[in-house]
Design a protein around this nucleic acid. Structure first.
Lengths: 359, 359
DNA sequence: CAGACTCCCGGAAACGTTTACAGCTATCGG
DNA sequence: CCGATAGCTGTAAACGTTTCCGGGAGTCTG
């Protein structure tokens, strides 16, 4: 009974030992051949043949334990149904793929414990690094971020003192761009449909809206502000409540999903866009261009933020000791038919990103 | 220099050895305490304290190597920007979460080598199982699927003899539902905007469309068929080409993104929907309800397919020896304003899934 | 022909966990 | 008071891979 080591795994799959035994070489040689480093022609032939015969496929977990890397990078976002994250994801994927890694996405669904759990599970070496874009951030959440064993980059606003790589934008300024544009085109009763105020972006956009109105000397009518969720249905419902209460001549929405909901509410209520009510969304997703009329939207540079975040992450994976960095991308405004008095229901251009961009 | 074993990892992070040494116990005791199994009160106290002091966090890779499981499940889809996959993903996530696992999503971008590479990387034990929804499937792709070391479930059409768990729908029948509905409401010049014919769904929908017209005794005018990509922009361009060529009184689109593109093209060309041209999409995503008018759409039960696929996967993870199974979900048609002659530009209902459903 | 150098190979140690097993102490029942 | 039993503990083996290191064989150089 001197059987020292089983040559296959519990469920009967071959291991490198199986291959080595079958080829009549040591596991060291087998491993070398399988990794394409070294080996005499004869050994290579035997090992390759043996591997093919038994259908050997290496166990990536064991390999990672040894090599201390997995070739995977994760992205955690609230809601994968929001096109802004799709845009961001595509940009990240492009960068990550160039380093030979693969991107995995997880939707936290806004449940913050979910995100913390993900951090605990994934960040403990299942991935080489992580990009997270939280919309609510608590203290122990932040603690979990800094304590992560693998590099983490945060996309979005974060406390000034957080020792985490961070890419952000100024969404207050983004809202200001929208308000400036509307005021400049003669609108005065400007409404605002926002997301929850207990989220980071919700709070920032609320502050931005109030500040912008004040700057123009417009006193705020609270009836013109309505809060819902960052989703289509909630946006539509919120806009309906607002319209039932008062009559705006313009509507700023905290993201494009809300703006689409508002457009629906406006059209259903018989208001013409932009003649009766001008409409401006936010995030400048492809959804904005799918609508009819196409929606003006404040770009918060989500693709750019994603790209930069991915680059920061790759740098930190290569050089873990770097000090925490912070980058900022500027918002800009894409003016389209939904808010333009000069463009009468225009034919959609084929190069959609070339409309008048104000930054 | 008899130092037998380093007590911390190369980058200075604590291991279970660090904790054990600091607590003055063996690594076995430390591990037991950290897993909450056994240990005297005194040992528990010491180990807990030591772990907290050094900030110990277990290496999940090492744990997985030992336990042969990771608690992760992956979903691979073409394009995460397509809302149909978002729906599917949500359904899968719900099931998977109930088993205490987490779902990771990967977008292959239609690059088939990408999907094969993902299979090689992820399926080799990084995840406990995988759900893939390929739109193109080659032979070695299929080979990679069956050879996967971890359970795999395929969503979508697959060769009849493939030894893989499979959840499918009948999209030919789905197209037929749309055509039947349009014919029944008096349309005769029915156009079809499809995706690429070299994809599985594209081919099936093309066949379904031709068969349905034939069944109604309508001879097909090839001018009424246009092919693009399964995306918004391509759908709009394809619809524009079609409209420049001929004058349909109805349009069936191979998915909702295409349908939105077609809607845009129709409105830009001054056609009224549904008065001049009735429009029916496919996949019944939330996008269909975001439009104005809301789009009729053939539901291919994507949420249901996702749910079933996840259940099949969990069963197989628990019981790997099961024979391959195949499940089918039936298509149905949600009739909304874009194709209804009887509903004049209706107010969107608040319970959007309750419109007249035909199956 | 001796030495240096190159190449290839196998043994064994790692990577960081979990866990089977055996030994020890303390308690309990008879 | 002795044997059985229960509860903890530590040693060591596993999980499946990569890689360091030393030895052997062959080739080249002087």
């Amino acid at each position: 009974m001197g059987r020292k080591r089983l040559q296959e795994t519990a469920d009967g799959r071959p291991t490198v030992h199986t291959v080595a035994a079958r080829a009549g070489v040591s596991i060291a040689s087998a491993s070398r051949v399988l990794n394409g480093v070294g080996g005499s022609p004869e050994t290579v032939r035997k090992v390759r043949a043996a591997a093919a015969e038994v259908g050997y496929v290496p166990n990536a977990i064991a390999r990672s334990l040894q090599s201390q890397r997995t070739g995977l990078v994760a992205l955690a976002v609230e809601d994968i149904g929001n096109p802004v994250y799709v845009q961001m994801m595509r940009a990240i994927e492009a960068v990550v793929a160039s380093s030979g890694r693969q991107l995995l996405v997880h939707a936290t669904g806004g449940r913050i414990d979910n995100e913390t759990a993900l951090l605990r599970r994934l960040a403990n070496r299942y991935v080489d690094g992580m990009i997270v874009s939280p919309i609510r951030v608590t203290d122990d959440h932040l603690a979990a971020l800094v304590a992560s064993p693998v590099p983490v980059v945060v996309v979005g606003q974060l406390g000034a003192d957080a020792a985490v790589d961070n890419v952000r934008t100024d969404s207050r300024q983004g809202v200001a761009l929208a308000v400036d544009h509307l005021v400049a085109t003669g609108r005065r009763r400007i409404g605002f449909v926002n997301g929850p105020l207990d989220t980071v972006p919700g709070a920032a956009r609320d502050a931005g809206f109030r500040a912008a109105l004040a700057r123009h000397g417009i006193t705020l009518d609270e009836d013109l502000i309505e809060v819902g969720d960052f989703q289509y249905a909630a946006g539509r419902a919120a806009a309906e409540r607002l319209l039932a209460r008062t009559a705006p001549d313009a509507l700023v929405c905290a993201n494009d999903l809300i703006a689409v909901g508002a457009l629906h509410a406006l059209l259903a209520a018989g208001r013409r866009v932009p003649e009766d009510v001008a409409l401006v969304g936010m995030d400048d997703t492809e959804l904005a261009q799918m609508m009819f009329p196409q929606l003006s939207s404040v770009s918060l540079g989500s693709a750019e933020r994603g790209r930069r975040a991915a680059e920061l992450l790759l740098q930190r994976i290569a050089e873990p000791a770097l000090p925490p960095r912070r980058e900022q991308v500027l918002p800009s405004l894409a003016v389209r038919a939904s808010s333009s008095p000069t463009l009468p229901a225009p034919r959609p251009p084929s190069r959609p990103s070339s409309e008048g961009v104000i930054s």
